[in-house]
Write a protein that binds this DNA or RNA. Structure first.
Lengths: 230, 230
DNA sequence: CGTGTAATTGAATGCAGTCAAACGAAGTGG
DNA sequence: CCACTTCGTTTGACTGCATTCAATTACACG
């Protein structure tokens, strides 16, 4: 709802929580069987191609989901934050992780062992429905992302990323967000240098401002126009 | 299982059927409430941004799922064939279609009205599980596709597409498959001209052959190498 | 204060897209 | 049956966006 000009929902990283359907009892059961992990910025939560141990609930911090490229370059396709769960796709499809997850900030996660997860899922059909709905929704978001990657140039993708990141970091008006150029360029799907050049242009054009490495949007309307969406 | 050198499963279009869990009774119920549609090559099954009416079961033929780009160019991200269902994501997420579907060949589909689908889903938890598993699996495939698009060049993506298409069309050794350059280029994510040039190169290098517009793989090992995967 | 990492800027290369035109196949109507 | 049209495919030439390599500047941290 940040901006009615931007087709927000379909392009957003944001996902509804599927954990609302849990009863008091189930929450208690989960809490008793959960391991709390405190992770530092940069640490990997799980690695691509490994076997899922359970489900991760993010309690604090921001997380990136990415796939490793040939040259060691990361392809970041999803950002998750407090309240979201990660690793549920692979748990459900009973396949190895198709991607890796790592911490963008210091993070606190709860690891729910897979037996616990499946026990709850077995009885809680409401949660099953929510999961189904959630995954199906993410699918639509993913299609949008994929299309953006295929059909927009670096300048447009960068503009889109800035709006999505502002929303993701949940910053208000007159607030900026901070992300490394490397992570940012891996979200946009370009090189660090190309991103830097585009950011430079945006600054010159008066659509953003960069202070202490934080990005501030100064002209949202113009930025949305640059996205060239719809 | 076409070729052990190619990391087949994770990149394939192929998806398990979720319809196996249906009982005799349920199949009868579906058949009584189903509309059979006969569609010509090129016809659209459903349009992006419209409201789902139901679920489509493909009885005969091949179907492309795609999203429209700015310039009217299609971005094809999934191919489906006999036995598969399409439109289930949007039905489950209760959102408008996030993509369009059209016929690559003449097609026969069964349209199962959404009430019928939901009635069955309500009682058949096994099918719900299978759907969940299916969508979660497709998600992994999708991540792979997205990564390929982001990190491989046109030559590599073309090679990958040829192997996937051979598998999709289910042709044996010494058999070719036929697809228009336009559709093919929209799968690869490039222009028609660029694809043609790459195909020309592949032919000269002896990895494929083109006869009567059908593509034959003549040196799979070399083709896999060109993919530059893993 | 020095050292390593991140960010920025410059220069050069090349991949792939666009535009334009030729060619081939298939279908239409006179 | 042939001229005509239309559509799909192919090839050529040109252009430009974005990557890569290289060098410099800014910044964080011990």
């Amino acid at each position: 709802m940040i901006n009615t000009l931007f087709p927000y929902k379909r392009y957003s990283f944001i996902n509804d929580s599927v954990l609302e359907s849990l009863s008091e009892e189930e929450i208690k059961y989960i809490e008793e069987n959960t391991t709390v992990l405190k992770l530092k910025k940069g640490q990997v939560i799980f690695h691509e191609d490994t076997t899922p141990m359970g489900l991760y609930m993010i309690k604090e911090g921001k997380v990136k989901k990415y796939a490793m490229g040939l040259d060691g370059k990361e392809h970041i396709f999803y950002l998750a934050k407090e309240g979201e769960i990660i690793g549920h796709h692979e748990l459900m499809s009973k396949e190895p992780y198709s991607s890796s997850s790592a911490c963008l900030t210091d993070v606190v996660v709860n690891l729910i062992p897979k037996q616990v997860f499946f026990t709850i899922l077995k009885n809680n059909h409401d949660m099953k429905d929510k999961l189904l709905k959630s995954v199906a929704h993410e699918f639509g978001v993913f299609i949008s992302n994929s299309r953006i990657l295929a059909q927009h140039n670096v300048r447009e993708r960068s503009a889109i990323s800035i709006i999505k990141l502002k929303e993701f970091f949940g910053v208000g008006i007159d607030e900026g967000f901070r992300i490394s150029r490397k992570d940012h360029s891996n979200i946009v799907g370009t090189s660090v240098e190309s991103l830097v050049r585009v950011l430079h242009d945006f600054k010159e054009e008066g659509v953003i401002n960069i202070m202490e490495n934080s990005i501030f949007i100064t002209n949202m309307q113009k930025l949305v126009k640059i996205c060239n969406l719809i």
